[in-house]
Amino acid sequence: MTEPPELQIFHLLRAVTVEYGLRQGEFAAHNGMHTTDVRALICLLDAERAGTDATAGWLGAQLGLNSAGTTAVIDRLERLGHLARVRDDRDRRRVLLRVEESAKELGRASFGPLIDGTVALLREFDEGEVAAVRRFLTGVRVIMAADGPGTAQR
Rank of each mutant, 00 (worst) to 15 (best):
G148H: 09
T151E: 11
R108F: 15
D88Y: 03
G81C: 00
A146Q: 11
G150L: 09
D91M: 04
A120Y: 08
V140R: 10
L122M: 15
V133K: 01
R108N: 14
D91Q: 08
L137K: 01
I115E: 08
R123K: 15
A120C: 04
G112W: 02
R79V: 03
R92W: 06
A103I: 01
I143M: 12
G107W: 06
V119W: 05
A152W: 13
R85M: 01
G139P: 00
D89V: 11
E127P: 05
G117T: 11
L80H: 05
H82P: 00
R85F: 00
V99E: 00
R79M: 06
I143Y: 11
R87W: 02
G112P: 03
V140G: 04
A131C: 06
F111K: 05
R87S: 10
R93I: 00
R108M: 10
G139N: 03
R135G: 07
R135P: 00
E101G: 01
V95N: 01
G107C: 10
H82T: 00
G81I: 00
S102D: 07
V133Y: 07
E127K: 11
D89C: 03
R98L: 10
A146R: 15
A131N: 11
E101I: 03
T151H: 13
G139M: 02
A84L: 02
E100W: 02
A145F: 09
V140M: 14
E101R: 14
L97M: 06
G128I: 02
R90C: 03
R123V: 03
Q153T: 10
T151A: 14
R90S: 09
R93V: 01
R94E: 01
V130Q: 14
V95Q: 07
E101S: 06
D89F: 08
R90D: 08
V133M: 08
Q153F: 14
P149T: 12
L121F: 13
S102M: 05
R94M: 02
G107V: 06
R141S: 14
R93N: 09
D89I: 10
G128C: 04
R85I: 00
A132M: 11
P113E: 05
P149R: 15
R92G: 06
G150I: 08
T151K: 12
